[in-house]
Nucleic acid binder design. Structure first.
Ligand SMILES: [Mg+2]
Ligand SMILES: [Mg+2]
Length: 437
DNA sequence: AGCCTACT
DNA sequence: CAGAGTAGGCTA
């Protein structure tokens, strides 16, 4: 049961509360949500039917938000995401106290093995099946066959127990302070916001999600101006709070640079640059002459650069950040590291547990779409993005764009608060704490 | 380039 | 009929 629960935990927003998923234990339909999540895990890990898996999870999420105990199939069917098939299962569970389908799944060796193996970060349904076909049915056996694993999977195996433990809110704050302290010693300063379930107010998180934007004075000033001239009342309030927070987060507003809209030669990198990521705000005319831009920390960073700010790039900046955190014994392992995303492991004594740390580095003009994305929850993001599509927009962590009649996204719209994104797609603003879907 | 796994 | 959207690693 623990194993199945974990799989569910892992699939649901990895964050809120260990077995919480969409449903807390005080929820009147808790047991129903549990069995739907178990079915979701089964469809993901065993049958690899993503859409079924998503359907069960979506149903569980809706049911978790339902205020009273569901009493039958008919009532269940009235809930969004619950139709004929799922309401029949709910009916069976209500009248017999169990579900035949689930009883069978629980006794199935293959299903049990696959679910256990996917506890390891980096091991998904396909790898689990591969391992199972190689005769490996549990984690103990997997530890004897490490030659079959990638780097990510090895780290996942090493910390499999720790990664299942939730992180108390106070420890997230301790980790945050440690990271701020470390990064404050770098020449390049960053705006840092802890997102994920922490920002949604959870008392316990599955990992720590850190959004960094590199400093940009011009963008900052412009943001403030626009906010002050904003008209809508709620808009102003919310947006101002956000700006205030952002400004508070900034430790040193002296550095400025622009590097995205330079057409560097940089072959592979530039080819990979998505339209999403290029400047669209009338960009910080900025002092790219202000050469203090990006020089990395005192050391050895391979990219510690002799070039002007305009030649810097994300990869070098994020590498430098991770390097700094390793130097200060905060980051202990890497799962992956690219231009904009770091996935790894951290530990801040006296805590003995190793914790999952994700860092996302964005250009400052992507800040609001960035925190919107990185705050989640995952189901909330899916839902909001679905609504965006219905309203004729497409939304990602960089920007929101209108969908042309051809289906080709247009130019990014200007965004100076999270609220504005909600406004564009006609959604009522939701506080982070209201985004726990 | 395509698949897998991951992130919200 | 469509389903959110994207990053990074690995493989061929
Ligand atoms: Mg998280
Ligand atoms: Mg995370």
């Amino acid at each position: 049961h623990v194993l199945l629960n974990f799989a569910y935990y892992k699939m649901s927003s990895s964050d809120s509360g260990h077995r919480k998923g969409p449903s807390a234990k005080d929820n009147p339909n808790y047991d129903l949500c549990e069995f739907l999540m178990e079915l979701s895990a089964y469809e993901r890990n065993v049958t690899r039917n993503t859409f079924k898996s998503n359907a069960y999870r979506s149903a569980a999420s809706s049911l978790a938000a339902y205020p009273t105990r569901v009493t039958g199939a008919k009532e269940a069917s009235s809930i969004k995401g619950i139709g004929k098939r799922i309401s029949e299962k709910i009916e069976e569970f209500l009248s017999t106290g169990k579900l035949k389908k689930l009883e069978k799944i629980r006794t199935d060796d293959t299903s049990t093995a696959l679910t256990e193996l996917t506890r390891v970060s980096g091991v998904g349904p396909a790898k689990a099946r591969q391992l199972y076909d190689a005769g490996i049915t549990n984690i103990m056996e997997l530890k004897k066959r490490t030659e079959l694993l990638t780097h990510h999977q090895l780290i996942g195996l090493k910390y499999v127990e720790d990664f299942e433990k939730k992180i108390p809110r106070a420890e997230v704050q301790t980790i945050e302070r440690a990271i701020r302290g470390s990064l404050s010693n770098m020449k390049q300063q960053y705006n840092m916001t802890v997102c994920g379930s922490y920002r949604r107010g959870s008392e316990r998180s599955g990992d720590v999600d850190v959004l960094l934007t590199y400093d940009n004075v011009e963008v900052e000033r412009k943001t403030v101006k626009l906010e002050e001239s904003s008209s809508s009342l709620t808009k102003e309030t919310n947006a101002k709070n956000e700006v205030a927070k952002k400004r508070k987060d900034i430790s040193d507003g002296s550095s400025d640079e622009e590097n995205h809209n330079k057409d560097n030669i940089n072959t592979k990198k530039n080819r990979k640059l998505k339209a999403d990521q290029k400047y669209t705000t009338s960009s910080p005319s900025g002092s790219s002459s202000d050469n203090k831009s990006y020089a990395t920390n005192e050391s050895s960073s391979p990219s510690a650069n002799k070039e002007s700010a305009s030649k810097t790039n994300h990869r070098a900046m994020l590498q430098s950040v991770v390097h700094q955190l390793q130097k200060d014994n905060i980051v202990t392992d890497q799962l992956s590291l690219g231009d904009t995303k770091f996935m790894g492991v951290c530990r801040v004594p006296p805590e003995e547990c190793y914790r999952r740390l994700d860092i996302r580095l964005l250009a400052p003009e992507h800040y609001y779409c960035g925190i919107l994305y990185f705050t989640g929850s995952d189901l909330f993001n899916k839902d909001m993005r679905t609504q965006a599509l219905a309203a004729g927009f497409t939304l990602n962590e960089y920007n929101i764009r209108p969908m042309g009649s051809t289906g080709v996204p247009g130019e990014p719209l200007h965004v100076n608060s999270e609220l504005e994104v909600f406004d564009y797609i006609g959604m009522k603003y939701k506080q982070p704490s209201e985004r726990n879907m």
